[in-house]
């Protein structure tokens, strides 16, 4: 698994996990919104490097 792909998955994790922390009342809404924006930006910057490429192209 290459670096952009690992970073992409970290971005996706940052997009979803903070919402569960808000639900569990471990995180406030402002931090949640900052974290999912960070996750979004990480995904946008890394996913195009691998998502449409075949195993051979990678």
């Amino acid at each position: 698994m290459n670096v952009p792909k690992i970073l992409s998955y970290i971005g996706l994790a940052l997009t979803i996990i903070p919402s569960f922390l808000v639900f569990a009342q471990l995180l406030d809404l402002e931090w949640y919104k900052n974290l999912i924006l960070s996750g979004t930006l990480i995904w946008f910057c890394t996913a195009p490097f691998w998502i449409n490429k075949t195993e051979k192209e990678r």
Partner: peptide, 20 residues
């Protein structure tokens, strides 16, 4: 394809985070 995995997570996250 670039946006497909990310978009549903935004919907899901916003629904879960607003429940409290």
């Amino acid at each position: 394809n670039i946006f497909a995995p990310w978009m549903p997570l935004i919907f899901l996250a916003s629904g879960i985070a607003m429940l409290p």
